[in-house]
Simulated scan of single mutants.
Amino acid sequence: MFTGIVETVGKVEEISQVGSNVDFVISSLISDELKVDQSVSHNGVCLTVTRVDEGRHWVTAIDETMKKSNLVELNVDSQINLERCMKADGRFDGHIVQGHVDTTATVKEISDENGSWIFTFELQKDGLVVEKGSICINGTSLTCFAVDKKIFSVAIIPYTFEHTNFNQLAVGNTVNIEFDIIGKYIHLIVNRK
């Protein structure tokens, strides 16, 4: 389980196809601290570390993960948001994040607000976006506003802009979306009746 508070931004060093899977080699400030079999959020996608060596770590994404996330658009030198799983005695600084991407969204607009930025997104499919509700975008816990069907916005403060890959996003880019887990369960229960 994660909280959506990005620890660091890693860099994609290598990408290789192995059967239907894709292996990624990532370099980051936390790579040497990782252990094999550890879960790490990569742009909001929970992936298992398979190897660690000299400031780099290896992860594998199955075909299903590639189809449902923006990992398919990564290239060598791409920047990727990283977060280790939360310790049992840790704080919930963001919200409950599983690392299970629900869908993707497209960046529709980026507005420089003279000290912060407003990012507007369009979902690829209908989702559980609630005004002032939590959402996870590329592994970053954020609050939605200006919600209108598949369109919503988030505000990005300078710290988040500088310490995540939001500073690399441009109009037309694809991001990973995980809806709030509590909202998903409530939606499921209500729709069963």
Rank of each mutant, 00 (worst) to 15 (best):
E131W: 08
Q168P: 04
V129H: 04
A170P: 02
Q168D: 11
K132Q: 15
S134G: 02
N167P: 01
I135R: 02
F152H: 07
N138S: 10
S134V: 01
A170C: 11
N138V: 01
L142W: 07
G133V: 03
F145H: 13
F152W: 08
F145N: 09
F166Q: 07
A170R: 13
F152T: 03
S153H: 05
V154F: 11
T164K: 13
S141K: 03
P158H: 09
E162K: 12
G172I: 05
F166I: 07
T143G: 09
N165S: 14
A146C: 07
T140R: 00
C136H: 02
Q168T: 13
F166Y: 14
T160V: 08
S153I: 02
F152I: 07
I157P: 15
V129R: 00
D148K: 14
A155W: 01
T140S: 12
A170D: 12
E131H: 09
D148P: 05
E162S: 13
T143S: 07
Q168L: 09
F145A: 07
H163S: 10
V129G: 05
V129P: 12
E162N: 14
H163M: 13
A170S: 15
S141Q: 07
C136G: 01
E162C: 08
G139I: 00
I157F: 10
T164A: 10
Q168R: 14
N165C: 13
L142N: 03
E162R: 06
L142V: 04
T140H: 06
F152C: 10
K150I: 00
S141V: 03
T164V: 10
E162A: 12
D148V: 00
T143C: 04
N165V: 00
N165E: 06
C136Y: 00
C136T: 14
N173I: 02
A155M: 08
F152S: 09
K150V: 00
F161P: 09
G133T: 02
I135H: 06
H163P: 07
V154I: 14
P158C: 05
I156T: 05
T143L: 06
V147L: 12
T143A: 05
F145L: 06
V147N: 10
F145V: 01
T143E: 08
E131Y: 02
I151F: 11
F161M: 15
P158T: 00
V130Q: 11
N165I: 03
I151P: 09
K150H: 10
N173W: 09
E162Q: 15
K150Q: 12
V130C: 04
T160H: 12
I137L: 05
E131N: 12
P158W: 09
K149N: 15
K132C: 06
A170W: 01
V129L: 11
A155N: 12
I137F: 02
Q168N: 15
G139M: 01
F145W: 09
V154N: 05
E162M: 07
A170I: 05
G172M: 13
N138W: 00
I135A: 04
V171W: 04
N173G: 05
E131G: 03
Q168W: 05
H163T: 14
L169A: 10
S134C: 04
K150N: 10
E131D: 15
S134D: 08
K149Q: 15
I135Y: 02
D148S: 10
